[in-house]
Amino acid sequence: MYRIGELAKQCEVKADTLRFYEKHGLLAPSSRTESGYRIYTEKDAERLRFILRAKAVGFTLAEIIELLSIELDKSNWACADVKGLVDSKLKHVNDKIAELKHFQVSLERLSQACCGGPESAEHCSILEALETNTDKIKCENHGHHHDDSQYTKKCQSKG
């Protein structure tokens, strides 16, 4: 049997984390003492470790709730259901990585297009690129243009 602080310490989280999980229906103390202290069992500790491992690989609270419901009723679920959840999460992560790579390339182009000097920002190529609907960013420090059709395509598709 664990009090909230003991379980939190054992799992290297704060007691507030356990209260948060309780508030959102992921974890509940097995009982309370007469004075109202939460009491957790080893089974509760295992559930907390499950939650923390699922969180560590990127699952959201809603996804963890779904995983917990499967965990509690394994005989009525197939491995394919669990794999489907993982594959869906993996696709989401891969999509996010692709989006971040796009941001990285776009920001690198903007950065390379600017000299970064002490001159007035009145003719800053970064601001001009963000203000206009142009396919090119004038490269102040190299004297050439970068093709930046991604900016235009996004603007045209939204407008």
Rank of each mutant, 00 (worst) to 15 (best):
V13L: 03
V13K: 02
K14I: 11
D16R: 05
T17S: 09
L18S: 03
L18G: 04
L18Y: 00
L18R: 03
L18D: 05
R19V: 14
Y21M: 05
Y21L: 06
E22A: 10
H24V: 11
G25A: 06
G25R: 04
G25H: 02
A28S: 11
P29T: 03
S30Q: 12
S30W: 02
S31D: 10
T33Y: 00
S35M: 09
S35P: 04
G36S: 10
G36K: 04
Y37K: 07
R38W: 01
I39D: 00
T41D: 11
T41Q: 10
D44K: 03
E46Q: 08
R47E: 15
R47K: 14
R47S: 12
R47G: 11
R49E: 13
R49N: 10
R49F: 02
F50N: 01
F50Q: 02
I51F: 05
I51N: 05
I51E: 09
L52E: 05
L52D: 08
L52V: 09
L52R: 02
L52G: 03
A54E: 03
A56C: 05
A56G: 10
G58V: 05
T60G: 01
L61F: 13
E63I: 08
E66K: 10
L67C: 07
L68C: 08
S69W: 04
I70C: 07
E71V: 01
E71L: 06
K74W: 04
S75D: 05
N76Q: 07
W77C: 13
W77A: 13
W77D: 01
A78L: 15
A78S: 13
A78I: 05
A80I: 13
A80H: 02
A80N: 08
D81E: 12
D81N: 14
V82M: 08
V82I: 15
G84H: 02
G84K: 10
G84F: 00
L85C: 10
L85P: 04
V86Y: 11
V86Q: 08
V86S: 09
D87Y: 05
S88K: 15
K89C: 05
K89D: 00
L90Q: 10
L90A: 12
L90G: 03
H92D: 12
V93Y: 09
N94P: 00
N94F: 02
D95G: 09
A98E: 15
A98F: 01
A98C: 10
E99Y: 01
K101M: 11
H102V: 07
F103N: 14
L107T: 12
E108C: 08
E108S: 14
E108Y: 03
E108M: 12
S111A: 15
Q112K: 12
Q112A: 11
